[in-house]
């Protein structure tokens, strides 16, 4: 066997823990939360309902809603930049397929790099995809919140129930210092 091929990105050797997560607030009280609807069916409803729960339960000050043009690829830099400026914290949903989960995680990591604490919500079927994407983007151990699969095609009440069920997990991802699973 020959010698190994060198990595031109400088990321491989320090992929674990390379991401410096954004600094978290102690609580959500009075904060402005950006809701990024990735455009998947029910995703808009879901993030809006989740926003309402965060207002009701945690005293979030206000929410701003944005929509991603294409769910399956990374959000345009301008959109993330806009969210970074318009909101103090961001929630992204819903990763309910392979490519859109990967893209949602990539968007979450990009926002963290801009300095905005972000919680990404994926359906439980895509944990493997989401975790792998975090490693690929130099953010091994980047945590996301999960809801039951599927999301598309659910009636409104069930979408609301999913939002209520995951709100505490989302809130904990957006606050406090711990944003990783025990150092991988």
């Amino acid at each position: 066997m020959g010698s190994s091929i060198m990595d031109p990105t400088g990321q491989t050797t320090r992929a674990e823990g390379a991401l410096q997560p954004a600094i978290r607030p102690e609580s959500l009280k009075g904060m402005t939360v950006g809701l990024l609807d990735n455009g998947k069916q029910n995703a808009g409803r879901f993030v809006e309902e989740l926003g309402k729960v965060l207002v009701e339960r945690y005293g979030v000050g206000r929410v701003v809603l944005r929509k991603k043009p294409v769910a399956t690829v990374d959000a345009p830099a301008q959109l993330l930049d806009d969210l970074h400026h318009a909101a103090e914290l961001v929630v992204i949903g819903v990763g309910d397929c392979g490519s859109c989960s990967a893209a949602a995680i990539a968007d979450g990591i990009a926002l963290e790099r801009l300095g905005t604490p972000t919680a990404v919500v994926c359906t439980e079927s895509f944990t493997a995809t989401a975790d792998a994407m975090a490693v690929i983007r130099g953010a091994a151990g980047y945590r996301h919140a999960t809801v039951a699969h599927p999301m598309a095609g659910l009636p409104f009440e069930k979408v609301r129930a999913r939002a209520e069920g995951v709100a505490d997990e989302v809130a904990s991802l957006l606050t406090g210092a711990t944003v990783r699973r025990g150092a991988a």
Binding site: G2, S3, S4, I5, M6, P8
Partner: peptide, 8 residues
């Protein structure tokens, strides 16, 4: 060109 340690 695959870059090896030796080449670099």
């Amino acid at each position: 060109v695959p870059a090896t340690r030796e080449l670099v």
